[in-house]
């Protein structure tokens, strides 16, 4: 209000505050722009897998990533393997096993005297390098140093799709196809079989009963995994287990 006549007009002070030249100008609205980035979504996993791989190499342990559909016989195969290794007595094996839920598989393996760490993934349908890192930490914390192992098997979550994309730091990828699940599985899941170093045809004791077409299965494997070693095994009868051991050790 004007102090002279109360007219309601605001009095303008004689001295206006001057703009200080050092004050930053108001930020301009950011301009839309495009950043070229090109980064793999799996970058973090790949970095951790490389860390795992170095750790395994330093400890001198052979690490196998064991993959298949649910129920193809991964755990049964490892139970068989554990029994044989214990009879030989000169090869120490431990297992890290991933499932969505339950620690049944780790308990089955522990019952054979094999150090086993269960990873329950909850939502994730595959193992990632970070989970393996934590599981190996746990194994060592329980008093099983990696350097005293000859073989560490990672039983992945039963799934033929996304585990293919996740490097865990393993030295060998073993993909299992059981005789009860159809000879054309490799053709339906080419990405998984592409990445296999070894393909095992499992539950061979059931081949006759289910009318398994051996030639068709071998041809399917040859189409998507022409480089892979192919073996038939049965965890039930023990057939092929010695050949598998030879290959692993």
């Amino acid at each position: 209000m004007c102090s002279h006549c109360s007219c309601g007009v605001a009095e303008v002070p004689r001295e206006l505050p001057q703009e200080v030249s050092s004050a930053s100008p108001p930020a301009p609205a950011p301009l839309p722009r495009t950043l070229a980035v090109t980064t793999s979504l799996l970058q973090r996993n790949d970095e951790l897998a490389a860390v795992n791989r170095q750790r395994f190499a330093a400890a001198g342990v052979r690490v196998v990533n064991l993959l298949s559909s649910p129920g193809s016989g991964k755990t049964a195969l490892l139970e068989q393997l554990a029994g044989r290794l214990q009879r030989r007595g000169d090869v120490a094996m431990a297992v890290v096993v991933g499932d969505l839920a339950t620690d049944n598989d780790a308990r089955r393996l522990a019952a054979t005297g094999t150090p086993a760490v269960q990873i329950t993934t909850g939502q994730a349908c595959h193992l990632e390098a970070a989970m393996v890192q934590r599981a190996v930490d746990e194994l060592e914390a329980r008093g099983q140093p990696l350097s005293e192992l000859a073989l560490l098997v990672i039983e992945n979550v039963g799934n033929l799709v996304c585990p293919a994309a996740y490097d865990l730091g393993e030295g060998l990828r073993l993909v299992l196809l059981s005789v009860t699940e159809g000879e054309d599985k490799p053709l339906k899941y080419p990405a998984m079989f592409h990445s296999a170093d070894v393909v095992l045809i499992a539950k061979s004791d059931l081949a006759e009963v289910v009318g398994f077409d051996r030639a068709a299965a071998r041809a399917a494997v040859a189409r998507v995994a022409p480089h892979a070693r192919l073996l038939e095994v049965s965890a039930r009868s023990g057939d092929g287990m010695e050949a598998l051991l030879e290959l692993l050790l």
């Binding site: 301009l31 839309p32 950043l35 980035v37 979504l41 799996l42 040859a222 022409p226």
Partner: peptide, 27 residues
């Protein structure tokens, strides 16, 4: 990877497994 010319089967995949972020438009 079955070659249409010579029929050989291999596994050298040049592309097809990408899972990449290539660009971002920001403001």
């Amino acid at each position: 990877c079955e070659c249409p010319s010579c029929g050989a089967i291999s596994r050298e995949l040049l592309q097809g497994r990408e899972l990449q972020l290539t660009s971002l438009e920001i403001a």
